[in-house]
Nucleic acid binder design. Structure first.
Length: 233
DNA sequence: GCGACAG
DNA sequence: ATCTTGTCGC
């Protein structure tokens, strides 16, 4: 198996990583609506870790947005490139994710990330970062709340509540994808509007709480990690 | 200074 | 993220 290399100049410490975020943030495009829900392709990306071996496996699964059928899937394995630090998740996950995306031989369309985009301490989460360095349309769908609080939201599928910054700006939304389940947290990454990001998320979760993109990518990267770990060193 | 804190 | 069995519920 091939081990993905960490990109040249990749930050090695939190100080420099934050500086990179502050510099790249200006390149995020927030004025594009992005692809309409239910059309084209939608790609889920996710990673799994094996701390014992210092390995990280990433997966990219491309789905037909209309049928949610799998169109293509790739994986990549690399060395862990950064420790887990809240707010700096991109530096830990992106090298492997970029490897999986590079292995794709088809257009990924909209990329759905596990985590946040704009609703981040410095408004430049994992989804924003991936979008800026690839130019792809991206959104973030997180499973847990992070820094921005939100009010109550209705119990029905599609109900939402704004995630607001200190200045009152709407940075994302808590979104209920199924009746009675905990919400997911949607925020814009790059080249997609928040309305579209939420519409895509609901369309991608017809049956379960999480979007099919993240469910499929999660399962695939775990399998890839198991395969990498069970093989010889 | 002390917690909290995406995955 | 990851360590981990059974169990309550639809």
């Amino acid at each position: 198996m091939t081990i993905i290399e960490v990109p040249q100049g990749w930050p090695a410490d939190p100080e420099r990583a934050r500086a990179v975020q502050d510099e790249l943030r200006a390149r995020v495009a927030l004025d594009e609506p992005g692809p309409p829900p239910g059309t084209g392709r939608v790609t889920g990306v996710d990673v799994a870790y094996d701390d014992a071996h210092g390995l990280v496996a990433a997966a990219a699964v491309v789905l037909d947005a209309a049928t949610l059928a799998v169109v293509a899937e790739t994986t990549a394995v690399g060395r862990v490139a950064f420790p887990y630090v809240p707010g700096l998740l991109a530096f830990r996950e992106l090298p492997a994710v970029l490897g999986a995306l590079a292995a794709l031989d088809t257009d990924p369309g909209l990329v759905v990330c596990d985590g946040y985009g704009r609703a981040h301490p410095r408004r430049f989460g994992l989804a924003s970062h991936l979008g800026v360095i690839t130019g792809l349309a991206t959104i973030g769908v997180a499973k847990n709340p992070f820094v921005h609080p939100h009010g109550e939201l209705g119990p029905e599928r599609g109900d939402m509540a704004a995630l607001r910054g200190d200045d009152g700006e709407e940075l994302g939304r808590a979104l209920r994808t199924q009746r009675g389940v905990k919400p997911v947290y949607v925020s814009v990454g790059h080249r997609v509007s928040l309305d579209n990001a939420c519409a895509h998320t609901v369309a991608l979760a017809p049956r379960y709480r999480l979007p099919e993109t993240t469910r499929r990518a999660d399962r695939l990267c775990r399998d890839a990690l198991t395969a990498a770990t069970s093989g010889r060193a």
